[in-house]
Design a binder for these strands. Structure first.
Length: 572
DNA sequence: TATGAAACTTAGCACTCTCTAA
DNA sequence: TTAGAGAGTGCTAAGTTTCATA
């Protein structure tokens, strides 16, 4: 193929492991149409004899060899010795060093995304109509540079020219271009921990803090205006109520050629279900096509209003707030406070919630318990903001593993109690039969399987150690140990297997450990209790967290800009 | 007031790096 | 010592807001 066509084919082939893209019919269709366009322009493909092969149908293309090639390269890179990897990284760092920082008002500042986005397939989220289209290579001729009047304009690559070099003192961007798929503007800006970004972040939180002074009045006003005679006012009050109470986004209008998602102002008839007396069910796709689903109770007047806004002849597809736009809403909000817009409510409510939870938090308990407390608070904020992630494919398996681990420790506790009885049968009367019984939820066949896995683990451990020692002997030029040695060493595992068998048969466990006493065993059981508690806490944390994304709220909800997040998490 | 361009923040996903428990 | 998990980072899509113009 012509290199241009091959580049597109390569882009598709290299992402075969991303099923949700590659198996999406829209993605396939868009990719194929862009691929064919270039194929038509460049004369399709040639076979080994130089005969032209016309590529027309997606179904007849096999991209697997491309994927295999890319995958092999990935694996080779991964398998490289650490030293070699380090050397390559160091080389790359040297090349990149001049682009990492810039001088801004006489101060050295870190640049964020200094690399131009490389060509590739557009990964639009949700049901984006353009997902899979080929994002073209950006040439210097498309790039505008923004730089100080007296500074030297960086040289474009050999044989090229910049689109323009300008000196905009107000803008914070360093370079800009337009992408070919949606015509969106792309900017090179400073990093999040730079002065400019830090300042603007600081201002954002100050603005949210300022809202605290006005929130009572705003709430009082919208409560009153919920009953306004003027429909536009009533809609506006209802919208502000939803934004304030449920952290909805503003919800600008979207075009036909974008994913069909909504926010507050763009909510449609079918996104809101009313259940008397005053329950509202929201179900819609928000930013990033993340589902927003919530059943909430609202003020009676809000319920009444939504009923009015949904009244016939409105039907599916019609807007609930037909007399309201985001700019109208924001204009109204700016009357309370300069710069007040819908998004400030999200920052305000998230920060307010976090602050309250941190104050309520008890600073007692073990470290894992404290971490869980913090994560719980973080999670509450993330849930408020509907920050979600897709549940990891391995989640169920991980949870099962964790449960197995806990049960393994509980089983070991049971064994220790039996050992106690072996050395001191009188304990049965003192502690009662219940103390020595195996928990009901631990089934006999689980025990058998668990024992087998313990034996197996022991075997692999011994074998691995043996192999490693042999390797070492060989590199030292000595004779390796014989297989007989391994067999002898494996006897430990065989003994273990026999022991379990005997235990299963007799229901008794021989004493283990040097100089066993009841007290020693009690100590061991107690230690296991702590470990079980820790594991249980972790497992709960994990389960509750499976579809909540904590990262964003960690950054955006705290009253400190992200450049100080490191310090704060240290304190927490 | 509507519309589109421009400029910025917010956000999830897929990596890599680092730390921890076994 | 090492595998695996969790944290951190890079990337870039997808929002919001502001500004200019008709």
């Amino acid at each position: 193929m012509d290199p241009q066509a091959e580049e597109i084919a390569h882009a598709f082939g290299s992402m075969l492991n991303s099923a949700h893209n590659v198996e999406n019919p829209t993605f396939q269709k868009n990719f194929m149409s862009d691929f064919k366009e270039v194929l038509n322009k460049t004369g399709h493909a040639k076979d080994r004899d130089g005969k032209t092969v016309k590529i027309t149908s997606f179904e007849k293309c096999d991209f697997q060899p491309i994927f295999n090639h890319v995958d092999a390269e990935r694996a080779a890179k991964k398998a490289m010795p650490a030293a070699e990897k380090k050397a390559i990284k160091a080389e790359k760092d040297v090349v990149e060093a001049p682009f990492m920082y810039c001088m801004w008002d006489g101060r050295k500042q870190k640049v964020g995304n200094f690399r131009v986005e490389p060509p590739g397939l557009f990964r639009g989220r949700g049901e984006h109509p353009k997902t899979g289209r080929f994002k073209k290579r950006v040439t210097p001729e498309q790039i505008t540079i923004n730089i100080g009047k007296d500074a030297m304009v960086p040289k474009p690559p050999e044989g090229h020219k910049w689109k323009e070099a300008k000196h905009d003192q107000e803008g914070t961007w360093l370079a800009m271009w337009q992408e070919n798929i949606n015509g969106n503007y792309k900017y090179v800006m400073l990093a999040a921990n730079s002065d400019v970004k830090g300042q603007s972040d600081f201002k954002k939180f100050e603005k949210a803090r300022e809202l605290k002074k006005h929130i009572d009045k705003i709430r009082k006003d919208y409560q009153r205006e919920l009953k306004s005679e003027v429909m536009a006012e009533r809609q506006r009050a209802t919208a502000v109520y939803l934004i304030d109470q449920f952290a909805l986004r503003a919800g600008n209008e979207k075009g036909e050629d974008e994913a069909d998602t909504v926010g507050c102002c763009s909510l449609k008839f079918e996104h809101v279900t009313l259940r008397p007396p005053n329950t509202v069910i929201f179900d819609f796709l928000g930013k990033d096509s993340i589902r927003f689903y919530d059943e909430v109770t609202v003020d009676n007047q809000v319920f009444k209003n939504l009923k009015i806004f949904k009244r016939s002849p409105k039907k599916d597809g019609d807007e609930i707030f037909d007399r309201l736009t985001t700019s109208g809403l924001n204009k109204h909000l700016s009357n309370y406070m300069t710069g007040l817009t819908a998004k400030v409510f999200r920052t305000y409510n998230a920060s307010y919630t976090m602050s309250r939870l941190l104050q309520e938090m008890k600073s007692t308990g073990t470290i894992p318990e404290k971490v869980k407390d913090y994560n719980d608070a973080n999670r509450e904020v993330a849930i408020l903001c509907n920050h979600k992630r897709t549940v990891a494919a391995s989640h169920a398996q991980t949870m099962e593993k964790m449960e197995d681990k806990i049960n393994g420790m509980r089983y070991q506790q049971w064994r220790i109690r039996q050992m106690m009885l072996t050395i001191e049968p009188k304990e049965k009367k003192r502690k009662g039969a219940d103390y020595f019984a195996l928990a009901e939820d631990i089934a006999q066949d689980w025990v058998i399987a668990h024992q087998a896995s313990l034996v197996e683990a022991e075997r692999t451990k011994i074998t691995k150690k043996f192999e490693k020692e042999n390797e070492k002997l060989e590199t030292e030029g000595q004779k390796p140990m014989k297989d007989k040695e391994l067999k002898e060493r494996l006897e430990v595992a065989d003994e273990m297997e026999k022991k379990f068998k005997k235990e299963n048969k007799t229901g008794k466990v021989d004493a283990e450990g040097k100089g066993p006493t009841v007290e020693k065993y009690e100590g061991q059981i107690e230690k296991l209790d702590t470990r079980i508690a820790t594991a249980k806490t972790q497992s709960e944390d994990r389960e509750n967290n499976k579809e909540v994304a904590l990262g964003t709220s960690k950054i955006v909800s705290l009253l400190l800009p992200p450049c100080r997040l490191g310090q704060l998490t240290d304190i927490v």
